[in-house]
Design a protein around this nucleic acid. Structure first.
Length: 404
RNA sequence: GCCGGGAUAGGGUAGUGGUUAUCCUUUGGCCCUGUGGAGGCCAAGAGCCGAGUUCGAAUCUCGGUCCCGGCCCCA
């Protein structure tokens, strides 16, 4: 038997109903905020992803060479492709540009809970806003999306200036190492006093305003001003947040404000959203422009989201020996456009078996049509729960299903 | 790449170094030619792959694959 590749998944109808439901909620929200959808190719030139992240990341990508000798890769994320698209064909659009995407991404990594080799990301890019206001919008939007689908995750905020300033005395290599240790929440950080104490006090849990105050003493920088402005805007939106200077994302393309959101119940992979300010367009040959955005790990949201998708009422037209009449009735019902489905036998089943079928699929009503009904220009509507059966005219039937 | 736990019909399971691998569910057929849910009968469908040990392996051993969880990583 041929099975699906490692780290990939099949989604059965029940899962797809849930996924599409959550997806449509997310789309609905961002579109209400004025974001418009874009779609980029599933694969890109591998350079698009290595240009900022270094060659090492090739190991985590699905890369290949096509027949023309081009080095390509399945996209491991969507921010770079969207910005590439912006540079390639949208640079002269009126600013700000509000774009959103929903797409599958691929990473060659060890699968575990909430982590797959093919996974879906839902995200937005807000191109050309001023840093503080644009990030405030992005954060509020991300928070709205997650709480609407039932996830209460407070936002954790930081500004990369702070740690950069604090560690500026160290060599680049040391900075990398220390940032990594901070990111991993390690208790042993490889630096001398008094820097160590400074880092420790910056990382200790504090109220937002206190955190900013403490940081101003230890590592005064522009970023802190930005951060305190952002905090005020978030108050306007009523978004709950914490300041957490351990958020580094330093190995990515982020440049200023950064934020993350975490959820319970996901094991080691509990980050459901991450984002911030970045600067990519000039790397792809465009003009530099302030941008920010976030990505939501759609699969992780689905893992803990309890939303029940709406169900469609099932109707079964039972053909009791009058196929043409049954088709006519089915067609008519389907044209009504209500929230129901209409199924008609394709297995040449007897009346009894068609009713059994209606029963096993959980149909709400069976509509029995045969010669008798045709002669009377009626149908027999059978309630599959109570067993009650009544005769209706076609007009009455139409009126009836419209209310489903 | 590393560590631990797994893998028996479509789904869920039992058991054993030894005839034809258990049960539930599911699916198809019939009892039942214009009325479902119950019941009865019949049928279909399985030990992840490969090698080794053995008279004999689904069972024991090793390797691989895949799944689950953790580490590394997470642009």
């Amino acid at each position: 038997m041929i099975r699906r590749p490692r780290g990939t998944r099949d989604f059965d109808p029940e899962e797809m109903r849930k996924r599409r439901h959550v997806e449509s909620i997310m789309r609905d929200i961002v579109e209400r905020w004025g974001y418009e959808e874009v779609l980029t190719p599933t694969f890109e030139h591998i350079e698009l992803f290595t240009i900022k992240s270094g060659e090492e990341i090739r190991n985590e990508m699905y890369g290949f060479i096509d027949k023309g000798g081009r080095e390509l890769a399945l996209r491991p994320e969507l921010t770079a492709p969207v910005i590439r698209m912006y540079v390639e064909s949208m640079e002269k659009k009126p600013k700000p540009l509000r774009l959103y995407y929903f797409g599958n991404c691929f990473r060659y990594e060890r699968p575990q809970k909430g982590r797959f080799r093919e996974f879906w990301q839902f995200g937005v890019e807000l191109i050309g806003g001023s840093e503080v206001y644009a990030n405030a919008e992005a954060i509020a939007l991300a928070h709205t999306i997650l709480s609407t689908v039932g996830l209460e995750c407070p936002v954790r905020l930081s500004h990369l200036d702070v740690m950069n300033k604090l560690l500026s005395q160290l060599s680049e290599e040391q900075q990398r190492k220390v940032l990594r240790q901070i990111d991993k929440k390690e208790t042993n950080i490889d630096v001398e006093e008094p820097l160590l104490s400074s880092i420790r006090s910056l990382l200790s849990p504090m109220e937002p305003h206190e955190a900013i105050e403490v940081a101003s003493d230890i590592a005064p920088c522009e970023g802190l001003k930005t951060l305190s402005e952002l905090v005020e805007l978030l108050e306007c939106y009523g978004v709950p947040y914490q300041i957490d200077f351990s958020i580094v994302r330093g190995l990515e393309y982020y440049t200023g404000i950064v934020f993350e959101m975490y959820a319970e119940g996901l094991g080691a992979e509990n980050q459901v959203c991450g984002g911030g300010s970045y600067s990519l367009s000039e790397l792809f040959g465009g003009e530099s422009i302030e941008s920010c955005g976030f990505g939501i790990g759609f699969d992780r949201v689905m893992e803990i989201c309890k939303l029940e998708p709406p169900t469609r009422t099932k109707l079964v037209v039972v053909n009791a020996g009058a196929y043409d009449y049954a088709v006519m009735v089915s067609k008519l019902l389907r044209e009504q456009g209500g929230n129901f489905s209409v199924e008609l036998d394709v297995m040449e089943r007897k009346l009894r078996e068609q009713l059994e079928r209606a029963n096993t699929i959980g149909a709400k009503y069976a509509i029995v049509v045969g010669e008798r009904e045709r002669k009377e220009k009626l149908v027999s509507l059978r309630d599959m729960e109570t067993g009650e059966q009544t005769k209706l005219s076609i007009d009455e039937l139409v009126k009836f299903v419209r209310n489903l």
